[in-house]
């Protein structure tokens, strides 16, 4: 393998990984824009979604072998089940945790989402244990080759689904009444309320949407890397780094930054040190936070940065 082929390989796996970060970062941005909250349990949606989908699709034993589940649903149904499970949890989190504390300080709200995240993590641990789980690839077949790099069929699925989701979200925000109401409530909550938009319902919708996005990310990556109960935190952190790099409020920025982060991480792990793989994105974050607070892509300090006190 020449260096060039190696580079191509790192970039391909980086884009695959980055697509997941992009989906999670999109969830962060959606919630933040509508409610002004950073939802630390974003990564847990991915984990819950993936585990539910795996349980629906394959034979799995739960609660340390005390319950055997053998649904073996077809893949689309399993994916749907995973997304729905995460969406329900997202809705519950908003109704039970965020809405009652909506007048509390940002500190309290952060702590609420952190609490929810570790409770969910414990719940997953209780049901599925510490074993790594893997979903079968969405389609069988030989991997493709591109410029000397191996591209697995699942990678193609990941990238394809990310593109479809991003385009779908764009159309939703742009052309549907609900999507425009969501954008209105992020631009100016007070005015949106005067126009008859139910802000609480929009908050709920944002959590539901983000939970679905996170779950989708977790499900599509489950055939590539094993899913374990403790991956949520790291996924959320990476997604958050991508959100900041993308300028905090910009969905387009979040997607580009997520993919860039995946590529940087993959290159750094391959060329420098794989032991410090998870550290690189934080090094990038520190540099960006301290040098350029508006993010790499956000050219100016928007109202959201003002709201965050920066």
């Amino acid at each position: 393998m020449t260096l060039l082929e190696q580079l191509a390989q790192y970039i391909v796996s980086g884009i695959t990984l980055g697509s997941i970060y992009a989906l999670i970062a999109l969830g962060f941005v959606t919630i933040y824009n509508v409610t002004g909250i950073i939802n630390f349990s974003q990564g847990e949606f991915a984990v819950v979604g993936a585990f539910v989908a795996i349980t629906a699709a394959q034979k799995v034993s739960l609660f340390r072998g005390q319950a055997a589940v053998g649904l073996e649903w077809p893949l689309p149904a399993a994916i749907l089940a995973g997304v729905i499970a995460a969406v329900l949890i997202g809705a519950l989190l908003y109704r039970a945790g965020i809405q009652p504390a909506r007048n509390a300080s940002p500190l309290s709200q952060i702590v609420v989402t952190i609490g929810a995240s570790i409770a969910l993590r414990g719940l997953v641990l209780l049901a599925w244990g510490t074993d790594p789980y893997r979903l079968d690839p969405f389609s069988a077949g030989k991997p493709l080759r591109l410029l000397g790099a191996v591209v697995t069929r699942q990678s193609v699925w990941v990238m394809g689904l990310t593109v479809v989701t991003v385009v779908g979200l764009y159309l939703f925000f742009r052309f549907t009444l609900t999507g425009r109401a969501l954008r209105a409530s992020s631009a100016n909550p007070g005015a949106a309320r005067l126009m008859g938009i139910n802000i609480q319902r929009m908050g709920l919708l944002a959590f539901v949407l983000s939970a679905g996005l996170g779950a989708l990310g977790g499900i599509v990556i489950a055939p590539i890397t094993f899913m374990t109960y403790d991956r949520g935190l790291m996924l959320a952190l990476k997604g958050f780094v991508a959100m900041i790099l993308g300028g905090l409020t910009s969905p387009v920025g979040a997607v580009i930054a997520g993919i860039a982060l995946g590529v940087i991480e993959s290159l750094a792990a391959g060329l420098l040190s794989s032991g410090y793989k998870d550290a690189f994105s934080f090094v990038v974050l520190f540099v960006v936070l301290l040098v350029r607070l508006g993010g790499l892509l956000g050219a100016r300090r928007g109202p959201a940065l003002e709201r965050a006190g920066l």
Binding site: G65, Q66, V111, G115, I118, A119, G122
Partner: peptide
């Protein structure tokens, strides 16, 4: 829950955090 141990205590911590911060 037979066989359960270790880190499951974090469920309670998590819920405790949420309840305290909300109420």
């Amino acid at each position: 829950l037979a066989g359960a141990s270790g880190e499951q205590e974090i469920i309670v911590f998590g819920l405790l955090l949420v309840v305290i911060m909300v109420f």
